[in-house]
Design a protein around this nucleic acid. Structure first.
Length: 338
DNA sequence: CGTCTTTGACCTGCGC
DNA sequence: GCGCAGGTCAAAGACG
């Protein structure tokens, strides 16, 4: 079962759920004479609208994540079948895909899933194609590429992603598949630090920035004392990390963190790559995990679970009630001060 | 004055 | 070989 409950740090409310409901209700009654019912209602409606909008945003984010995961899973399957085909027919040159995708792009996609470490040693060195393929794979292992999504304010048109590191912009280009320009950054510690990143707005959602990191920093995080996570943006940043591409991903807000493990129905924090690495036979494990998630039943089940968990989860309800009552109480306190 | 950003030109890889 | 598209360079300008 997928556990999508939000740990909103409201444990007392969770334990005293029924008591809370009564308390909130009684609070409403007690506050009745002080605040007109109309104000209460409008405030509640306003809060409800806000929560609905938030819920909608979360759903959109989840959709984006699922799409990314599906795309990646397909690429893994494609890659694995390609590797299997090569192992069975070593002399056959690598068939070029129909698309006009460039080499660097396919590198990015392959590295995102980090499956290169699990490839078997069987490799034909007789042909040039195989040699270049081997070299290419070595390069892929060398440079770690990851993709991170940041949600920004719709009004924010800059391509700046505050991830804690210092970057020097060295180029900008309009690409064919996306009307918004792509910005190229180098780590400011370059040339000692070889890390580069590309930032471009998502085609689907212009408020989402897609940052593609190439390489690993060979120096400590500049804000390591402030930041709790090197990959997540500072909490005071207005951007929200939607998570990196791997299917087990975190949606980070300034407050709670929702971790969605799409690899299996049971709750597990283990990433699929780690699972594959730990498994004695990595490829069947990954394929099985992919098969599990592939079914449309699972997809719809997942969405239903998310929705019902949010609506049924007492902690979510309690959080909502607490937020609403808190708002009202705050409003009352403010009113009483005036 | 040093650092950073901007932006047009150039380089490189790939498909036809 | 040519054209296209992505990636990089480097001169010029902005800014503190």
């Amino acid at each position: 079962m997928v556990n999508t409950s939000l740990d909103l740090n409201i444990r007392p409310f969770r334990v005293l759920d029924d008591a809370l409901k009564q308390e909130v209700q009684s609070s409403f009654i007690d506050l009745g004479p002080k605040t007109p019912v109309k104000e209460e209602t409008s405030a509640l409606v306003e809060e409800l609208n806000r929560v609905s909008a938030e819920n909608k945003k979360l759903t959109e984010m989840l959709t984006v994540l699922c799409e990314n995961y599906n795309a990646l899973r397909n690429q893994v399957m494609e890659y694995m079948s390609k590797v299997n085909a090569q192992q069975s027919q070593p002399d056959q040159p690598e068939s070029s895909s129909g698309s006009r995708k460039r080499k660097s792009d396919s590198n990015v996609e392959n590295n995102n899933v980090n499956i290169n470490n699990n490839l078997g040693p069987s490799e034909s060195s007789s042909s040039d194609e195989a040699g270049s393929f081997k070299k290419q794979r070595e390069e892929q292992v060398k440079s770690k590429i990851s993709r991170v999504y940041f949600r920004t304010e719709p009004s924010d048109t800059s391509l700046i992603v505050k991830d804690g590191y210092q970057w020097r912009k060295y180029g900008q280009k309009v690409t064919r598949d996306n009307p918004s320009p792509r910005a190229y950054f180098k780590c400011s510690f370059a040339p000692s630090c070889p890390v580069k990143k590309k930032v471009q707005r998502s085609v689907e959602d212009q408020s989402i920035l897609v940052a593609t990191y190439d390489g690993e920093h060979n120096h400590p995080h500049p804000n390591s004392k402030v930041e709790t996570s090197s990959s997540s943006p500072p909490s005071n940043n207005k951007s929200v990390a939607l998570g990196s591409v791997p299917c087990s991903t975190s949606v980070t807000f300034s407050g709670p963190t929702i971790t969605l493990d799409l690899t299996k129905p049971s709750t597990s924090a283990k990433r699929p790559q780690e699972e594959a690495r730990a498994a004695p036979s990595p490829i069947p494990a990954a394929a099985a995990a992919a098969q599990r998630v592939n079914s449309p039943e699972f997809q719809s089940f997942l969405v239903e679970q998310m929705a019902s968990s949010l609506t049924k989860d007492p902690s979510f309800k309690a959080a909502l009630a607490a937020a609403i009552s808190g708002k009202i109480l705050q409003g009352n306190l403010a009113d009483s001060k005036w």
